[in-house]
Amino acid sequence: MNRFKDKEIESLFSRIFELGSLTERALSDAIWALSHHDKDLARGVLEGDDAVDELALEINTVSFQLIARYQPVAFDLRALEACIRMALDLERITDLAVSIARVTLDLDVRIKPLRNLEPMGMRVIEMLNLAMAALLKRDVRAAENVFAMDDAVDDYEDGVFTELMEIVMATPALASGSNKLITVARILERAGDHVTNLAEQICYMIAGNRVRAAKFRRTRAEEE
């Protein structure tokens, strides 16, 4: 009976990993498409969204079925809660990737590649990969490292704003395109927040205590 339960929870985790890799793919494609003006790739991101929604829904359905059938407690209960919430966060990150792809499709001017935007996206992807690795290895320390990485994402966002400001001052005609890129920076910042949520869920699932990401982030005083 428990072997069956263990197997079903394991198979749920493998679906989370599958969702994680679809999400990573969507995000990296969205960023590549934006920086290389690749509208075909951007359309691919839009098309991939349905599969992600379906998989996230399936994870939720299966989690509820397992709760109903096994009345899980302790780690099992935390694992199922984590799966439900992680599926939601991953699905949201994919939605954000779709928003970035839409910006690419909308963008009618060519703005030179920004120094900060692509690295910002890469950083979020790195966080996502680290969170998934922490989940795979049940490694709280690795999940906690995700929190601090979000500081760098914020720095890149500031960098993007400064760069775009300079561009608009030099070429006012690029104002509308620049605005769209500011939106992208905002979107990536929110994607980073969702990855932080993932890491919080992973920590709780493994260790049983609620960690707050803020504890691992630099303080406002340090920022100044």
Partner: peptide, 15 residues
Amino acid sequence: FTTPTDQRTEDYITG
């Protein structure tokens, strides 16, 4: 039933 401290408790209640 949510966050037991002892591994033996965890093992027992999760079957």
